[in-house]
Design a binder for these strands. Structure first.
Lengths: 219, 219
DNA sequence: CAGCGGATCAACCGAAAGGTTGACTGCGGC
DNA sequence: GCCGCAGTCAACCTTTCGGTTGATCCGCTG
């Protein structure tokens, strides 16, 4: 009999307990192991692989306080041989989170506030080699392929990061060895792409979409 | 046999399942009921009270997507007769969150990444009429009573939060029904206390010191 | 090669923000 | 009752920022 075996990866004991209780309550799903961050997940995966017990799906949180984050871990897992499918289960549904996860090779993207039945479906689908996307994630990906020209250039992201640290235009200019005029030009472009009209709104928008890390983010 | 009876309030089914599994696994703790937001919690509380089964403690998340938020719900619960103690269990430990919760009458402030044993202790302590604070929450409150002059006033924190959402001075003024001049006065004070000289730097500093949550962070 | 987009810079102007001074109210403590 | 502090507002000035126009340079691509 073929049970779907899941590797849980989440840094919150409470969430792990919830998933464990919820998933083991379903027919045909079992927990193979648990890990509290990406690095631990890779260790578990190596251990299980050595035993010939590769899990059928990895259920992974994206935000994990101290250890390796979910996107990095997903990319690492996808490099393995064999590489179990990774289903992202997270709290946020921001553009960059979703895109980063998909680019890293995730088989699905679900939100933690999803009803249990949806979660069950997603786990089974991912384990079977399919995909499982939350509505907003699906919508975003559709939108991306229809008009891809909206994203920020690497240079713009770099200036955005400096902006978020609280530097003035002049200070940013000095930092990257360009003129203040150029900084202003870049900012105008950034504001246009983000749909805002000042620097604080740009920081808020860029943080929300996970284009940049929150100012003073730890880790 | 006096079991401690808990009312769970969290908008995530997964988290509720986790807390349910974790707490019922402990001796002397039982789940009285569950609710997915503040309003539902008040309903449950009314229902239980009518049955003469008032819970011994309310375990409440602060960030809840759609319904009444945790701070408002806590304040409402504390107005009841009888008013069960409210233990906050949340993901973030920013000054603004902690102070708001304590001012609303919470008996404790714990983080979701706390180990199960700590959680158990906190629930029991709160139920017994005591308090339970995460280390950072305790440190913050100690700091508040020792040197209250250095820290930001509630009003200043409020403006800081609006600032971080990307609003202009005029927009902030309209939001809180004061003049633009007053906003500027507050900002000057804020800059002085944070040791910065512009709004983006204020956001960065306030985020770093956990006075406010990162711009765009959502529950 | 012509065209496009990214990156660079200048000059300019109006709008917003930063900073200062001063003043008034209301509340709590000594 | 007086003092200090938080909160409110006005007037004024300087600096910074936002937005526009226009330009050069470079690398890639059809």
């Amino acid at each position: 009999m073929s049970e779907v075996r899941v590797l849980l990866v989440d840094d919150h004991p409470v969430v792990r307990a919830g998933l464990r209780a919820m998933l083991t309550g379903f027919e045909g799903i079992a927990i193979a192991a648990e890990a509290s961050d990406g690095r631990a997940a890779l260790h578990e995966l190596a251990r299980l692989t050595a035993l010939g017990e590769v899990p059928d799906v990895v259920l992974m949180d994206l935000q994990m306080g101290d250890g390796m984050d979910g996107v990095t871990a997903t990319a690492e897992i996808r490099k393995l041989q064999p590489a179990p499918p990774v289903l992202i289960l997270t709290t946020y549904d921001t553009d960059a989170d979703i895109l980063a996860a998909v680019e890293a090779g995730a088989s699905g993207y679900m939100l933690k506030d999803a009803p249990p039945e949806q979660l069950r479906q997603a786990v089974l689908q991912a384990a079977a080699g399919g995909t499982a996307l939350a509505p907003r994630a699906a919508a975003l990906l559709m939108d991306r392929i229809s008009n891809p020209g909206t994203s920020l250039t690497p240079r713009e992201v770099q200036l955005l990061e400096l902006l978020a640290t609280g530097l003035s235009n002049r200070a940013i200019a000095r930092q990257v060895f360009i003129s203040e005029a150029t900084v202003k030009t870049h900012l105008v472009h950034i504001y246009g792409k983000l749909g805002v009209d000042n620097r604080t709104a740009a920081i808020a928008a860029a943080t929300q979409r996970r284009i940049i890390r929150p100012p003073g983010a730890r880790g």
